[in-house]
Simulated scan of single mutants.
Amino acid sequence: KIHSVAGKIAAAGGLMTRRPFRAPHHLTSQVALIGGGQSPSPGEVSLAHNGVLFLDELPEFGRSVLEVLRQPLEERRVVVSRARYSVEYPANFILVAAMNPCPCGYYNHPARECVCSPGTVHRYMGRISGPLMDRIDLHVEVTPVAPAELAAAAPGEPSAAIRERVVRARGMQAERFRNLPGVHTNAMMNSAMLAEYCRLDAASAALLERAMERLALSARAYDRIRRVARTIADLAGRGRIGASDVAEAINYRSLDRGGWGQ
């Protein structure tokens, strides 16, 4: 329906059979990303509904463009209000973003020297606000791969095995939320559900408290760490969250508070 309203389905296309993958350019406007316009139309966040929205070179997007992502990431919907109309579009998507560590791309590189000044690195990271970073569950630094490792091409874990583990974890979540209409995954839990399904033992709670103080994390990051820890435990087939699950979830908050470049 969304793609049909936006005129993205050809006359002979019929129903969509694959989840959408949208990758807008970093020069995309705020209206194109969020929706609206003189004749209201869904934006990229709604065209990615039930699929993936991929933003490459994240800091190159305009600051105002990135800030409009806050509502859909939190509420999984977009409300566009103008003088002549007010419309609501669904926007339940997985956000995947990629960026360089600095303008030259070599900050923290093991073999090449970064030519950016500390102030330049901070300004580059500052293009992404703290509130937006709060809403991104996983921050993963991908280090360079040596040519010898690329040439070796050692076989990794097969995708089929990973899929089986994910399906098993999703089955656990489906059973957990079977009596809660509209809730299907850990990411959809509210505060009350977190208190019920993400209880921490004394060791895990103490670890998270120390991380909150040391990293100056927000209350939103606190909740997201618990959700991620719950998912890590699900993937491992554990019914209870352990200290190792919380520690791994904390490691995924490395870019939260502007520590990059220090």
Rank of each mutant, 00 (worst) to 15 (best):
L150A: 10
A151M: 12
A152V: 01
A153G: 07
P155D: 11
E157T: 14
E157P: 10
E157L: 11
R163K: 10
E164H: 15
R168Y: 02
A169R: 06
R170P: 13
R170D: 10
G171P: 14
Q173H: 01
Q173F: 02
A174S: 12
E175P: 02
R178P: 03
R178Q: 06
L180F: 03
L180K: 08
H184K: 12
N190V: 00
S191I: 00
S191M: 05
M193I: 05
L194K: 00
C198K: 01
C198Q: 03
C198A: 06
R199N: 07
R199H: 14
R199S: 08
R199L: 06
L200K: 10
A203M: 14
A203S: 15
A205H: 07
E209M: 11
A211S: 07
L215W: 11
L215H: 13
L217D: 11
S218E: 00
A219V: 00
A219K: 01
D223C: 05
D223T: 04
R224Y: 06
R226H: 01
V228Y: 00
V228E: 09
I232F: 01
A233Y: 10
L235M: 08
R238Q: 12
G239K: 01
I241A: 12
I241P: 08
A243F: 13
S244H: 14
S244D: 15
A247V: 12
A247M: 05
E248G: 03
I250W: 04
N251H: 14
N251Q: 15
